[in-house]
Design a protein around this nucleic acid. Sequence first.
DNA 1: AATCCTTTTTGCCAAATGGCAAATGTTGTC
DNA 2: GACAACATTTGCCATTTGGCAAAAAGGATT
Lengths: 190, 190
Amino acid sequence: MENLINYLLQFGQLNPQQIDLVKDKAKEIYVKKEEYFSEAGKVARQVGFMIDGIMRVCYYNHKGEEVTRYFIDENNFVVDLNSFNYQIPSSEYVQAITDCKLIVFSHSALTELSGTIIGWDSMVNKITSKSLLQKIERISPLVAEDATTRYLRFMERYPTLTNRIPLSYLASYLGITQSSLSRIRKNVRL
Amino acid sequence: MENLINYLLQFGQLNPQQIDLVKDKAKEIYVKKEEYFSEAGKVARQVGFMIDGIMRVCYYNHKGEEVTRYFIDENNFVVDLNSFNYQIPSSEYVQAITDCKLIVFSHSALTELSGTIIGWDSMVNKITSKSLLQKIERISPLVAEDATTRYLRFMERYPTLTNRIPLSYLASYLGITQSSLSRIRKNVRL
DNA sequence: AATCCTTTTTGCCAAATGGCAAATGTTGTC
DNA sequence: GACAACATTTGCCATTTGGCAAAAAGGATT
């Protein structure tokens, strides 16, 4: 819980009372490996803050292939924003890659915090835009660089992850086939 | 100006008084083709709402090549968010592709609106996250699909643009070379 | 250890894309 | 119209990546 509070304090001020308000609304949950935090076709009910573990966001493209859009690790929020904000059915899946522990808030809890804490909206604003911009920064270079570079960059960003996730997830994230990734790995090892 | 107000009203309510407040802070400017709306190394001073014209956001990758990250057309906000929000030097360029007319707000103007209009932050929130999500939605498929598909999708999204922008901008946006794009065009024409 | 199942690696060849340079086309200026 | 400057297309060939199927490697269960 302290992790979450520290994270929030980076984006604005909260007095002890307000911190208690936040804590009151928070709930700790666990999501087992392979299970979904939110699913396509359903409304995202909660926003989560990752305490432990890794998740991924994926969808099915027009060819029916599963594509991993991004990975989310500790000390980051995980949420299907479009679905959560407007409480409409989602078009993507958020799935635990490892066993995960997270702190969650329901939609109504956040609405209440927004009404109770002055400056809450501004904090949410900063957190949202920072995290979305980060995602863009991460995806963007994937378009312009060759596959080997993309793989190397991924290893820099998620050094501990590279060998803990299925090859297929990583390949679809990088926009290449499993075999290509396997070959690239071989070359990089040499 | 009406375009802007209508756009804003999609994301929240404003009474006539508040609309006047917004209009008071707004300023109309023109940016000529090829000129920059904001530049790498400088602090983004304003956020703009595109009335007329097209801009692009670009940066230089580690190989020194110019890469177009995205295009912005009419009835959308254009801003280097990271630089503008924190008033820090930017790392990318926002450049007019055609002559542009836009309505702009300074950073301080927005701060004032945030303090004056109840619900303003929440509107900004919605607009920001919607537009960033849209960018992600647009970039994401570029990673997974082949070059021809990317080009066709681009034409669907920006039908009027395809033949008005330099090949090089579009190629770098799609993550391919100019020659490849030229060849793809030829094939598509057939 | 033997079996089954899944994931990863590999081989083979085809298709897509890149790199480079020359040719062609376009635009604006005098 | 002639020219220069710039943008686009094309040819040639090398490199990268994909598609498919078989082999190898790893994991879990009995």
